[in-house]
Amino acid sequence: MSETRYTDQHEWVRIDGDEATVGITRYAADQLGDVVYVELPEPGRSLGQGGEAAVVESVKAASEVYAPIGGEVTAANAAIADDPAKVNADPEGEGWFFKLKIGDSAELAKLMSAGQYADFLKGL
């Protein structure tokens, strides 16, 4: 049974056992506009919670994507590197960025639930 958590930097992380899939939220994708480029972490790279993991760019904006939790990168989504439009089309599905082997699942406690994130967005 998977569970999705959110950061205040607009990343989502879906937990499946000890594997986490990371992407940017629909809100973030809409704010950026048409995504034209993503830079993804190499598998094997080890990331700390909140560390810079990826870059996402539209024509007039660019942003770092931070690791919602620490761990070792196990996969990067080559499909969005080839076709960045997938990030806008389906940011919380096919437009995922990378997968992690979770280091310390206690770090998840610092993240928001879907409901908390929705409230957070209302406050922006």
């Binding site: 480029y37 007039k60 660019a62």
Partner: peptide, 10 residues
């Protein structure tokens, strides 16, 4: 194009 490399965005 590729202006995200440049100072006014980055």
């Amino acid at each position: 194009t590729l202006s995200t490399r440049e100072q006014h965005i980055r």
